[in-house]
Design a protein around this nucleic acid. Structure first.
Lengths: 214, 214, 214, 214
DNA sequence: CATGAATGAGTTTTCATTCAT
DNA sequence: CATGAATGAAAACTCATTCAT
């Protein structure tokens, strides 16, 4: 039925509209300081309406994280399974994907941290929780797999691949944090782009194994 | 007056007792989910008493950050000004200092993030704010100075020294975050020690310049 | 006009459909915990449609009560005015009618209680309120009239007839309540039928006057 | 310690103060229409204070029921175990106890009905729930025991003792309900005292077995 | 007529902070 | 100084009712 489809599409658009507004508010104020009324105002809707699309503030928040995780997974899966790319290209593409996430919503990786609270987890619907867990695990394992390949081909120093994947993730979470902290300490001119480029470079060198090393 | 001194010392001890309790609670639950009553209970004091030593929850929190920043500054200043150490030793000592902070309170660097909220800043007393700003800037500039030395002596790749300092900080903030996130996604066995060691290694290699590189 | 009639009949059928659904929902959850959406879902209609047939939740509820009151009145009037029945038969028929109401909707007598709230009453349309008042009064007075007859013929103990009518009503309201309360306290096996039979018997004996009594 | 005792007594008095206020408000408006703010205003306290003594609206309500159940149990246990009373005296004392409850809070027996909702039960602390269940069962079984005695001594008609206990309880719940319903239908002059007296009389007659009966 | 998405006032609950003892 | 009961403003969430389609 065409009507049902249209309804579903409209419903999905409202969801997106709310998520976009929520992202803006969460990014600006952080999870705890953002009120549902703030989000409603930003979405130009009434508070009650939000609850027609998301069961609770936590579910709304988790849905935002989910979207980012899905994006990362698509990218990572694509990069990892592309047999035409050599290792160097894959590493570059991976870092590019993470920077895309960063550009989309710099705080999401840090805010995701909020989900760790066991109280929060209890209130999430099991489906949501399961998808989040699965996607997180999948992204990480895909990255680890890529590093394992690099180690095998002797292009990356021989360290536990999962630890390397963790460092990639941590470095980016940390940069976000740090960018915000710098604002706090009134660092006159925080050149994030420069820092990111340097990080990529440092990180790339550290991973790369060269003859005569060790 | 001996009496006045004793009083002052007792007062300082109470402050420390409260801060130790607050650290434990903030570390466990995060800033927003920690209540003043939680902290009072942990300190075996009444809520009212906390307010005799700290003007507000925010000031208590900022005082915790301050303590960590002071510790880092002492270490960094010492390392940087020690003319007996060569660059490699300095870099190692610096990373060691940061890991000490991490061992003392893994979440402090992340939680510090909370201060970024402009609402929070407004409620802090100007003296507190100034000291925080100064210490943060100082620590970062000292680190940057160290890297500048390394670059000059051709021991470190030629990148903006401040950016390198940022990356050090960010990497460690990020690792903490990530450790917590892994709990969330039920990562089967998260070997933080391994990850940290690898990070040190990767980071060290990336910073170190070698003949024939580039 | 045949068309107008058909329309009217269809309209009446929708009303009935909604009332049946509402009865089910109110019976299950009670007045306050039942939402208009619950009722709409049960009636397989949309919430908006309910409002085409009933001005408000209160009016819908009052309409349900009205239906029961009308049923009781028909029965009571019939019993009381039937000159062919002797007193004993009338009393029996009356109790039978009440049990019929009970079988139809055990909670209606209790739920009716909700109407007592003065706020609720204010929002009812005067016509509805008037009919409810009149029917209630009429049913009670008819019963009282019957008891007065019994007293006159020396078949029933000499007590205020209205008080006797009240007790009949109260006993049945109470039994319903009590049946529900027993579920709450996990009474192992609540044999309502047995209790009702006993109640009829005890009550009948109490009303019956016997030679030598008093 | 005298201080601890005094504190405990003061705390208990506040609890009572709140419960008295809550009783008044619940009695006047019913459970659902009573807001915590209403109760706080009646108790001349702030809403937050109520939550220092009762975990939720439901727990406050359940505590009220508990108090009444405790009272009934004390009375019933006393009457049943008093070997100096004959059956007739016991029955009279029992009805008297119930009327005392009724005089104290006419609506409590009806309102208790609210607890039956499974949603409500889930939110109650298990201890509270257990005590309510135990007390209810105990009161009922004690009453049933008394009737069993009466049946054995051939003073009460031979019916299931538990059914007789149920009827006692139901009759009184019902009278309360009915008293309120009468207000609703603007019954000109509702003489509750007369109805109650008649109910006692009718009920007593119904229970009493006499030679030559049946 | 029928729909069902949207509304927003109203409710329960939390917690930083104060102040009388 | 220390206490901890009390406060009350603010937040999450609900639901009867409306109205554009």
């Amino acid at each position: 039925m065409g009507i049902k489809e249209r309804k579903a599409r409209e419903r999905e658009m409202r969801r997106q509209q709310i998520m976009v507004a929520a992202k803006r508010v969460f990014t600006q104020r952080g999870y705890e300081k953002s009120t549902m009324e703030d989000i409603a105002r930003e979405a130009e809707l009434s508070p009650g309406t939000i609850y027609l699309y998301f069961k609770s503030k936590d579910e709304l928040y988790a849905s935002l994280c989910l979207r980012v995780l899905r994006f990362i997974n698509v990218k990572v899966d694509h990069v990892v399974s592309d047999t035409a790319m050599d290792y160097e290209a894959k590493q570059k593409a991976l870092l590019g994907a993470i920077q895309e996430v960063y550009d989309y919503d710099p705080l999401i990786l840090n805010n995701m941290f909020h989900l760790q609270s066991s109280d929060t987890l209890k209130s999430l619907s099991p489906e949501l929780m399961n998808e989040i867990n699965e996607l997180s695990r999948n992204a990480l394992q895909a990255m680890a797999g890529m590093f394992a390949q690099g180690i095998e081909k002797d292009l990356v120093i021989d360290r536990h691949p999962m630890a390397l994947a963790d460092i990639v993730w941590a470095l980016f979470s940390g940069l976000v944090l740090w960018e915000e902290s710098k604002k706090m300490i009134n660092a006159e001119r925080y050149d994030l782009q420069n820092t990111l480029t340097t990080a990529f470079d440092v990180f790339g060198r550290g991973l790369r194994k060269r003859r005569g090393d060790e």
